[in-house]
Design a protein around this nucleic acid. Structure first.
Lengths: 345, 345
DNA sequence: CTGAAAGCGCTAACAA
DNA sequence: TTGTTAGCGCTTTCAG
């Protein structure tokens, strides 16, 4: 017999206590808790009163043990600290709360996911489903997940995998729109700084840029397309390079806001003005984009909404017990601030 | 009898299956799992083999139900997306992993914690302990936590509460050191932009600045002390104000890096140079501080280490079952980059 | 060193 | 409408 003496004193009240206090069997208490229709109104009220009075809160472990479900989902992310992921999580949080689920957080901290059994152990650690925000393609895990028929959703994932359920944004269209906007402003000499090219989103954004340029018959200048990596310092350095050419661009389109911020700093350091001398446009619409002077015109990604949609999909799968496939792409939107102006003025 | 048919197929193997396969009782399997010494080496090996072969992973709910412990801690934070919190979480993560604990994430998303019973429900949601990263003082929750003898640790908390266990940084000393550094460089006209003054850390930093100024008998200029709020845009605006004075400061000390970044942008926009015309110093040492051009000299907060220490404290409390008190203050450290120079040159 | 078995708190089937 | 009860998978005591 286990020592039931020094059990956590925080969850002391059980349904048995409630049952005794309310003068019913503990099965009835269970029914009340689970909103079973088969309880007389009067009894239900009485039990509820006792529950409140005694401060009863169900024991999760016991519930999970018998029901086989934990009402927890696992969220696997590479790292925190990027505003980007925070936004997505906010969306996840919202839907989780209304659906009464909890979230376990797992971070890979950029290191490649360790053992091949990692995901497997996540599953076994007792979550009902998994949301993965892993830009790089973790192909083998997805395979395992699929073969186990375990509910999962990918967020903003850009790998080879195209079977599992996923939600992303219209990277191609967003970049196309931004480029078209610059062109509409009269710009022809538009430089582009890419993201990390091993990511699908970077490729899509580049493709969107190229497509718009092509559409308006503006020839691409090889030197004006610089390979970046989403880091601010890279934006800075790239802008310096671009501005050192005798043939300078009049607008710079960075594949994310952080690089655009770096571009803005570089332009300032050179002694040029934004948007007076050069227009700058970013991608993501992170919080800081609206904080700079001038405000950064950028392509908004509906990150919060992506988190919400993903969560909704996951919950649906978990409740219905069926695995879906197919990717949702949420629309991006151009946010006009003050970092671009028409050219020539 | 509950339907045990469509149970999660992900955790099908139980100790009973293992026991049968290994030809022992399931009590013995349990002993092997829990590293009980009372198992013959040979038996232990055989069971372990079967465990691996069958891919057995213990059922958490069942374990928790009988042991009364979940091996999960709860982390309550205001919001994500601030690099600041990401760093702390990284530290927490590291220690949690070595101690084999999992983390449930709860975000308040800036809104005031809802019902007064919120913390209580966190506790009941089945975590063994709580880490709170809540700059504002949630006094009543702490009281409840203490009265319940529930293990918790505060991180970087700056409220009235001084009883519970907490880990923070030497805000006063850090600000003092930074100010002293500027003075040592020859600066006398040093402006200061505060953080949100309802936070203890902001007050401590201001006090550190004032103390250093006093120590070197430099009179404070009221107009040069501007009340800020940790936002980049506020740094920008404040710097513009400061530079509009006929009597201008030669150095600006911002209470955090984000505001310092705003200051740098403003100075650039005015057409002045950093550090040529004006020195800038920040606080926090966020990732971006090393990414700017020039690099931002700042006061490093050992955020990751704060997370680690807090976690260690919490684990200790949970394992020993005793509540400790007392705050740990981890030392800050001045990080010299290129945003300050001696004055006059 | 090992087996047997009593629960942990709860859900859900079965009776009544 | 309610009470009764068999487990969920596991830990831990008690015998042996």
């Amino acid at each position: 017999m286990p020592k039931n003496s020094e059990k956590s004193p925080y969850s002391s009240v059980t349904i048995i206590d409630v049952a005794r206090e309310a003068g019913v069997s503990y099965g009835t208490v269970s029914r009340v808790i689970n909103n079973s229709p088969n309880v007389k109104m009067e009894t239900r009220e009485r039990v509820k009163d006792v529950i409140n009075r005694m401060g009863f809160v169900g024991n999760r472990s016991a519930r999970s043990l018998v029901s086989g479900r934990t009402h927890m989902i696992g969220l696997l992310i590479p790292d925190l600290g990027t505003a980007y992921i925070g936004e997505i999580i906010r969306g996840i949080d919202i839907e989780l709360e209304t659906a009464q689920y909890n979230m376990m957080l797992y971070t890979t901290h950029r290191r490649e996911i360790k053992e091949s059994g990692y995901i497997y152990s996540l599953i076994q650690s007792g979550v009902d489903g998994l949301i993965l925000i892993l830009p790089r393609n973790p192909a083998n895990y997805l395979e395992k997940l699929r073969s186990l028929q375990f509910p999962y959703v990918l967020v903003d994932h850009q790998g080879i995998d195209d079977q599992g359920p996923a939600v992303g944004a219209t990277n191609y269209q967003g970049a196309y729109d931004a480029t078209e906007y610059l062109i509409g402003l009269g710009h022809k000499r538009i430089a582009f700084i890419t993201g990390s090219m091993d990511l699908g989103c970077s490729q899509e954004r580049l493709a969107g840029y190229k497509a718009a340029m092509k559409k308006y018959a503006i020839p691409l200048v090889k030197e004006w397309i610089i390979e970046g990596d989403f880091e601010m310092s890279t934006g800075y350095v790239s802008a310096k390079v671009l501005m050192s050419f005798t043939e300078k661009p009049t607008a710079i389109f960075a594949s994310n806001d952080m690089m655009a911020l770096g571009v803005m700093n570089a332009v300032r350091d050179i002694g040029l003005r934004i948007p007076g001398d050069i227009s700058v446009i970013g991608f993501d619409d992170i919080f800081q984009a609206g904080q700079t002077m001038p405000g950064l015109t950028t392509v908004h990604q509906p990150l919060e909404r992506m988190g919400r949609e993903a969560t909704l999909m996951l919950i649906d799968m978990m409740e219905k017990g069926e695995i879906k496939t197919g990717k949702i792409e949420l629309p991006t939107r151009l946010v006009l601030r003050d970092s671009c102006r028409s050219f020539p003025a």
